[in-house]
Amino acid sequence: MAATPSHPGLLSGEALERELALLPTLELDALRSRWRQRLRSAPPPQLSRPLLIRVLAYRLQARVYGDLDRDTARTLERIARQRIRSRRSAETPSSIPIPLPAPPPPAGSRLRPGTLLVREFAAQLHTVTVTPEGFCWNEQRFTSLSEVARAITGTRWNGPRFFGLRDKSRGGQA
Rank of each mutant, 00 (worst) to 15 (best):
F163Y: 05
P50I: 01
T143W: 02
R166V: 14
R156V: 14
P24C: 10
G134K: 04
L11A: 09
A107N: 06
A15I: 04
Q140I: 11
T155R: 03
L31H: 00
Q82N: 08
Q82D: 15
S6Y: 07
N158C: 12
V128D: 01
R85Q: 14
M1F: 06
S95G: 04
H126L: 11
F163S: 01
F162G: 00
S169I: 07
P97A: 15
R150V: 12
Q61D: 05
A30V: 10
R166H: 08
G66C: 08
L56F: 06
Q173W: 12
R38C: 13
F135P: 00
Q46G: 09
L31T: 00
T129N: 04
R36D: 13
G134R: 03
W137M: 06
S41Y: 02
R78H: 12
S48C: 05
W137H: 14
A102H: 11
G154T: 14
P101F: 08
L22E: 14
A15D: 12
A122R: 10
L23Q: 04
K168M: 06
A122D: 15
S6E: 13
R150P: 01
L76E: 10
S48A: 13
R54C: 11
P106S: 07
P113V: 11
R88H: 14
R59P: 00
L11G: 02
L111T: 06
F142G: 03
G171Y: 09
Q46E: 15
R85G: 09
T115F: 04
P24R: 11
L56W: 00
R119S: 12
T72V: 07
A3E: 13
I79W: 03
I79C: 06
S146K: 08
P44T: 08
P24N: 12
R36A: 15
I98V: 14
R81L: 12
T129V: 13
R161W: 09
E120I: 12
V128L: 05
G13A: 13
F162R: 01
Y65K: 03
R36I: 14
L117T: 00
P8L: 15
S144F: 06
A2N: 07
L117S: 01
T131R: 04
T131Y: 04
A123C: 05
R32I: 02
T92W: 02
E14N: 08
T129P: 00
P104Q: 12
